[in-house]
Design a binder for these strands. Structure first.
Lengths: 339, 339
DNA sequence: GGCTGGCACTCCACAACGACGAGTGCCAGT
DNA sequence: ACTGGCACTCGTCGTTGTGGAGTGCCAGCC
């Protein structure tokens, strides 16, 4: 049995009302608030069908209806158009992001902006090292046998590691090592690095071989293989605001999940540039069923260097949230393209 | 009227019982669980006095007693000895912190460790730039008119800023600028930087004057004056665990306050190496009355480079928390001293 | 004077109860 | 295919009552 237009309209109305009132919506209230052109009784029949099909449900007999995850899914896929942003929102985005000092600052501002606009929990992944190129590698002697290795990616991201050298290395040798490494790696993508680093070790003059091996090891191990991905979080207070999550039962596991960077990366480290919406049970993470997650990739132009998004209750304003996340991602992408 | 030993003992017992059971404690239960050597009636009289003095209170008539902020204060100052750490905790600290890759990683592991051991919200300030020296300043050309300036502090902290130069600057000039800047600033404390940077501008050769001014401006503005202090947070899920905070009323403002870096810095950016305990209303921040905060400074040896601590309900295990925070701070201090 | 046992009193927590009302499903009628 | 009517369900909310923990006070005891 398929759903005719009016039934879809009823579903849309239920979703909209429930999202705004947060209370089960009954047939009478529905016809009052929307021009459906039919009586409550008719709506009730439609509701019965929608319930059979699994799009809505009753919390208990004699209560109004509430959309199911499946209902939200249909709503998002078929029944909603992306809301255009209000000029106020556009201005907020610009005002918030201009004047960012460095990459850290951009990410920081972005995640707070997202949290504020959507009034939900926001997550932004730092530009992924995997998808970055090396802009420059700097060696800073810390002592005679220790060197700080600083890698600067083209996205502006900076990573550093301390390296213990096997022997004392004179200053000139450090300069030479720096020159060699940059010659080989600067401008290259990080994913292409391993063979190049290998080549560095093989080609280097015998006198520099030992320190070069130490450097190469750290480079490979901690920057390439264990390519450290990071995320930033904001707006957890909004979880308490919604009133959807109860303190003992659902809020704590969510907060716990949000503290696991691995989980956040899995969810928000978007690979494709497109928008993705996970609703309730569609979620991979057990503890985050009951929440919905809207994510997108971002980056300069069409390239994706990382993901961002928001997390909130399944009863969220999907069109609005999607529009905001998309707009912010685009704006940040443009920002990255400039630098 | 002063409090004799037994009354103090009663107060200690009340605090201990209330912290562990989280329920108002009555006179009968008290004599059963502690060897006070007197009858409930006597304890009741003592309680009446303690209540007059403001150390305990009754939530309502015919309920047991609960310590007031003042009671906790007396307990912390006079009635408790710092608990020695269990060997298991010592081992946990070591196991957790060895193998940290870089400063970011140290801070990251530390804050999670603190949250886990105390089962509360943990905060760790990054080593303050104010108290750091410059280890090295690196200039990385990004385009012909843009340079990334990377400052590496002796604590291992790395900060970077993008600088727009007024004109194209040839590669050799960048090298020269780098040399000049490092010559002047390397090894100097950041607080001493402003006159040195000023001198750099005045002494530089006329051809390099314009780019040097641009660099100096950024150095002064964003690294010295607006010396960016950062903090890291973990364990917010523990707020939900305690069951002390209700969802609508108290939890949300706390989460909001915790997202304000300014507030966290004010609270946890300890200046002195000593332990500090703020209990309930003693707190400067309105929204954090109702919580207690245990902080300490940390750093290599006796120097303080930053603060760390935990935040939890006023009914917290003060001796245990204080011991843990102190131990972790010392361990991290040692770690910093090594590098 | 300080401690104790006894006792009347207070007041919260909790369960039971009932009225209310929103909302439903179904059916007969148009 | 839609509508109005109607009986029914069931959660919400306010009321009421009871049980029990805990207190304050007092008279008596050491």
């Amino acid at each position: 049995m398929s759903l005719d237009d009016r039934k879809l309209e009823v579903l849309r109305a239920i979703v909209q009302d429930y999202v705004s009132t947060q209370e089960p919506v009954g047939s009478k209230a529905l016809v009052e608030r929307h021009q459906l052109g039919v009586s409550p009784a008719t709506v009730r029949n439609d509701m019965a069908v929608l319930e059979d099909e699994g799009y809505i449900r009753q919390p208990h007999t004699s209560a109004g209806r509430v959309p199911t995850d499946r209902g939200y899914r249909l709503f998002v896929d078929k029944l909603s158009r992306v809301k255009p942003l209000s000029p106020a929102e556009r201005r907020a985005i610009e005002r918030f992001l201009v004047g960012a000092l460095d990459l850290d600052d951009v990410v920081h501002r972005t995640v707070r902006l997202l949290a504020q606009l959507t009034r939900q929990v926001a997550v932004v992944q730092y530009p992924s090292l995997t998808r970055s190129s090396v802009r420059h590698l700097e060696l800073v002697p810390v002592s005679t046998t220790r060197v700080l290795i600083v890698m600067i990616a083209d996205t502006g991201r900076v990573e550093q590691r301390l390296v213990d050298l096997p022997d004392q290395v004179p200053h000139d040798d450090v300069t030479e090592l720096r020159r060699l490494i940059n010659e080989k790696l600067a401008g290259r993508r990080l994913v292409d690095a391993p063979p190049l680093v290998q080549a560095l070790v093989e080609e280097v003059a015998p006198t520099l071989r030992a320190p070069m091996i130490a450097l190469a090891t750290v480079l490979l191990e901690t920057l390439v293989e264990r390519r450290e991905e990071r995320v930033m979080l904001a707006g957890t207070a909004n979880l308490a605001r919604t009133g959807v999550f109860d303190l003992q039962g659902s809020l704590r596991p969510i907060l716990e999940a949000l503290e696991e960077e691995v989980i956040l990366l899995k969810l928000f480290g978007a690979v494709e540039p497109s928008m993705r919406v996970r609703i309730g049970d569609e979620n991979e993470i057990e503890d985050l069923r009951g929440t919905s997650i809207v994510t997108t990739g971002y980056g300069p132009g069409a390239t994706v260097v990382g993901g961002m998004g928001v997390l909130g209750p399944t009863r969220m304003d999907y069109p609005g949230t999607i529009a905001t996340v998309r707009a912010v991602a685009r704006y940040v992408g443009d920002l990255l393209a400039q630098s």
